[in-house]
Design a protein around this nucleic acid. Structure first.
Lengths: 234, 234
DNA sequence: CAATTAAATGTCATCTATACAATTAATTTT
DNA sequence: AAAATTAATTGTATAGATGACATTTAATTG
């Protein structure tokens, strides 16, 4: 078969915006870029899409190399294609964002790539349009988490209600009334109370909860209402 | 400057999912493809991204050529990149969806491209992965319209509440109680009642309304609640 | 002028959201 | 061992939103 004549071919990359939660703050996984241009500067983890692979594949492969992780929550953010976004050569990038629990996978981070968790509050300069990507991913995360029970992906299997609240407060950079918060999340029926307690962070200890996997899958695509009015937060 | 060596370059296209509303049904704008492969088959309007243009530019350009329209509501859906989506050559596509009022722009449709409005209810076969794109775009439209006042883009400047309701019912393929519907949309404060009436479709006539542009812009990004529970419709 | 049609408006019970306070279980201090 | 301390857990009252349901009104048509 012939090819489409007289059209420009371009490099196609994927970049991963990997969010993590350390129990206190929302973090972003970045690396020191290992090749020119912009070698040595902070960058999102990414790479070129190979001739025989799709975007999801490329993103999963990249994530695996960096973190050793598979089966992580990941979704496409959008494609970025400004003609000037890479000074070397026209390169478009399809951005994916992923959610992982920092503590569960702390050890697995590849040493080779000098990956680091940095706080989203004091984001350093990143190469190309990566800051824009992160900013968009953060907006998407807020948008989505207001409606879908997506933030559980950032927590360990067992977590407490106070831990969950700290996470929501970190994502929306606000504070919630703890009485209303716990009533709301419990009313979804997604949480199953465990017998044991988390004892590190308080005298009384807080009961652990786990996600009800069945209900989680069933309700994931339904519109819930995890955060009352995310567009109107102070 | 050098280039990234040993990487495959690919064709980058954009495709437009253009939704329209004729007062009764939700429609999709498609064309008969004018070149090989798949010449003569139904296709979304699209084209290759040029060396010096970004995605939005490419999509706007394409939309302009087909419909003569500028300044239309348009947003990126997502990028599609299956290695086998185009049999001719590896081509990735960034899909955009657009919303326009059919009646306002009926005349401007380019004859050259044999564009046609087809009903979404009986969608014919489309080339490549275009059916998948349409399906995703429809899901996005439903998702977004439940929260944001986006569907007004499909209506003429002046419209009636019953017309608006028919539109919402078409998008969600359901029926709403007219008393509750009008209460809800009026409670947003986005609509400004006009002095004149639409008289074609009823004896009494229905008052026209216009969007309050100021409030529309202000409230667009806020989460409203246009459709009560879009995940739970019959 | 009565019949017809669709628009517009109204009511009530139920659920949901939010503001706000008291109680309880455990550890730490005295 | 009792008192103080800390954070978890549970509760209540009110305002507003939602959803089911009926009546009135403005205009045309026979």
């Amino acid at each position: 078969m012939t090819r489409y004549s007289r059209q420009t071919r371009m490099l196609v990359a994927i970049d991963c915006i990997i969010f993590g939660f350390d129990g206190q703050d929302l973090k972003l996984l970045v690396i020191k870029r290992g090749f020119e241009p912009e070698k040595g500067k902070w960058s999102l983890m990414g790479g070129f899409v190979q001739p025989d692979e799709g975007f999801e594949e490329a993103a999963s492969r990249t994530l695996k190399v960096l973190t050793g992780l598979e089966g992580v929550y990941m979704e496409q953010l959008m494609a970025f294609g400004s003609p000037t976004r890479d000074m070397m050569e026209r390169t478009i990038s399809v951005a994916y964002f992923a959610l992982i629990d920092i503590n569960t996978y702390k050890q697995q981070l590849s040493e080779e790539y000098r990956a680091e968790w940095i706080s989203l509050k004091k984001l350093p300069k990143l190469i190309f349009d990566h800051v824009e990507m992160v900013s968009q991913a953060q907006a998407r995360l807020r948008y989505k988490a207001a409606i879908h029970p997506i933030l559980f992906e950032l927590l360990p299997q067992k977590f407490t209600i106070p831990q969950l609240q700290i996470l929501y407060e970190a994502v929306y950079d606000t504070v919630f009334d703890k009485r209303n918060f716990s009533r709301k999340v419990l009313s979804t029926g997604l949480l199953v109370k465990q017998k044991d307690k988390e004892r590190a962070s308080s005298k009384r200890g807080a009961f652990y909860y786990k996600l009800d996997k069945r209900k989680y899958s069933a309700k994931f695509h339904a519109f819930l209402n995890f955060v009352a009015d995310p567009g109107n937060l102070k």
